[in-house]
Amino acid sequence: MRTEDKLRNNRLVFYEKDIKRIDRVLEEFLKLSGAKLALLVDREGHLVTRQGAPVEFDMDSVSALVAGSFAATREMAHCLGEDEFSIMFHQGKKDSIQLTLVGDRTLLGIVFDENTTIGMVRLYAQEASRRLTDIFEKSDRENREETPMEQGFANDAKDKLNDILGE
């Protein structure tokens, strides 16, 4: 692998237009499935985008836990001779969450309650996952230019760090 390709693979860049398309898919998914909330999280636990009802929980923590939980499940799958478990489901008294693998690098977390059923969520989640995978594949194929970070981004960020953490 060329150095350029290696470095490209070392990060995830989401452009505004990608996110708009992803958001449209998630919106439609929520309407069809009756789920409350849909989160798209990358495998490192960073939130990519979300659609649905307002939430009171810390989205960063939930995203990290979703990714951690999925990573642990994958190890379990390896122990059982599977490549991957593509779906995980946690049932609560009121709310439940289903995690679905989308492509290679992202996870779709769906929060739903008794207003819908696991079957409906699973049905439409499969569709949504396929459509999101299509979006990612198209974006990967597209020969696009990088949007440069602002000049001096690192220095400005380090100044901020000094302000927050002390000199």
Binding site: Y15, F89, Q91
Partner: peptide, 29 residues
Amino acid sequence: KTATKEWTQPGPQLIGAGTRTARAAAGSA
């Protein structure tokens, strides 16, 4: 402001929804 470069690709293709059978299964961690 931050300038962003947007895609010029057309919107996602619609995939026929409701054509797959739901598999009802529940698991717990």
